[in-house]
Amino acid sequence: MNIFRLLGDLSHLLAIIILLVKIWKTRSCAGISGKSQILFAVVYTSRYLDLINAFISPYNTIMKIVFLAASYGTIYLMYMKFKATYDVNHDTFRIEFLIAPAAVLALIVNHAFEPLEILWTFSIYLESVAILPQLFLVSKTGEAESITSHYLFMLGSYRALYIFNWIYRYYAENHYDLIAIVAGIVQTVLYCDFFYLYITKVLKGKKLQLPA
């Protein structure tokens, strides 16, 4: 564990909490992509199946359980409790176009051709693009509430911090995992455009609004 990894995990946790609290407090999930939330649930489920057969540390186990629970909790709030507020007409990204290529790639490029390993690889590939439906929703409506922007910023920061974590681990522990690194860089790049808008607009108190 190093400071980048810890801060990355905390940003991730904070992003998830921001989203849950936003939906709960406003009694609305307007502006949030249910498709992205489904993809994240698929990501965590396929990755954290190793809860059954691998123990890393209490920290690791607790975080995995929290991510899984929060992810399914978000889906419950969006698709059941506050379904009436869900922006279904704008959330039109076809997630099969992300799931199918991630599955095929996981079968071809992996560390070992074993069921759990392939599921882990699939989760890494899918996570790298899971935010696309959310970014697509923001681009379709042309704006995002500040709180949604904060959520996206924390989620992007988590990925950027993980890159620093991998650089650190490469030098300090001689540890690296090319699959995670390449997918993580792809994922971080997807946030770059958003980071720019966040820093130039949201932090100056303006709403995140795309040019018409």
Partner: peptide, 10 residues
Amino acid sequence: MKKNSNHDEL
């Protein structure tokens, strides 16, 4: 080859 138990990140 890395085994699944080596995936120590979240």
